[in-house]
Amino acid sequence: MLAYLMKRILLMVPTLLGIVVITFAVVHLAPGDPASLKAQSATDALASDAMTRQIVEDTKAIYGLDKPLHVQFGRWLIQVATFDFGTSYRDGRRVMDKIWEAIPITLTLNILTILIIYIVSIPLGTAAALRPGRFFDRASSFVLFVLYSLPSFWVAMMLIVLLGSGDYLNWFPITGFVSPGADALPWYGWMSNVAWHLVLPVICLTYGGFAFLSRFARASLLEVIRQDYMRTARAKGLSEWSVVVKHGLKNAMIPLLTLMGTLLPALLGGSVIIEQIFSIPGMGRLGFESVLARDYPVIMAIATISAFLTLMSILITDILYVMVDPRITFEKR
C-alpha cells in the first residue's frame, strides 16, 4: 500500500509539470498581452494618444515579458518551487493574497450548493429507482431535465427581474453576499443578512445539478437491486427500509465515489456566470477578470492550484475505494 502510494505521488510530478507547461504555453501564446492592454483602458472606446509600440515595449520590459518564452517559464517555475506565485500584473498585489481573498466566498457558495444537490438528488434518485418506469420516476426525470436545460444566465436574470428588482417583487438583494455596513449587526443578524443574500445565487447554482446526480443514484441503485444479496436480504424477511437503505443504498453509493474526484477542485472553482451577474467577488470572477486582463501570474496560479487539487482528489478517490470496498486492492494477487 505504502509503496503504491509513493509511486502514485512520484508520478504526479511529471503529470503536473506537463499540465503546467501546456497551460503556460497556451496562456502566453494567446493573442493579446498585458502590456498593450495597459496602454489602453479596457473600454469600448480607444484612447487616441496611447497606441504606440514603444509604450508597449517599455511596459513589457518592466514585467520581463520581453524575454523569450522558455526563459520566462524557467523564472516562473523557480519562483513557484519556492511556493511564491509572484505578483499580479494588473494591480501589483501578491497573487496568493488575491486568491485567499476570493476562496472563502467561493467555498461557502460551493459547500452550500453541493450539500443541497446531494441532499435533494440522492433521495430523488432512490425513490425513482424503487419504482422504475412509474409515474414518479418519469415525472421527476422530466422536471429535472427541464431544469437541467435552462441556461443559468437566463434563470439568474429572470430571478433578478422577478424577485429582486423594483418592478415586480422586491424580496431579495441582487448583488454581493452581505449588505454594506452589516458588520455593525449582531452575529445572528449578520448571518441572516448573508443567508438572505445567498438565496438567489444558490438557487441558480443548484437547480441544474439535480438531474445528473439523481440519475446517477437511480442507475447505480437499479444495478444493485438486481443483485443476489438483495434477494437474500428480502428472503431473510428484513423490512423494506432496511433492505433498501442498508443493503441497497450502501452498495449503490460506491460508484458515487468516482464523483469525489471532481469534488475538491469543484469546491474552489467558482462559477463565472453567477459570480459575474450577482457581483460576488469569488474565484470565478477573479479568474475571468485575469484572463481578460491577460494577468498571466494569476491565471497560472489558479491553473496550477486546480491541477494539483484534481490530481490529489483522484488519488484520494482511489484510496477511498480500497477502504470502502474490500473487493478492490492495490496489492498484486
Partner: peptide, 30 residues
Amino acid sequence: WATMLDMLSRRDFDAASLAWSTTLEEDPYQ
C-alpha cells in the same frame, strides 16, 4: 478586446467598427 487590440496593432484587419474617446483640445497627431 485584448485580441482585437492585437489585430489592430498588427494591422491585420479589413475594416474596424470602433469609437475614439478624445479630449476637448484634440491633437490629431497620434
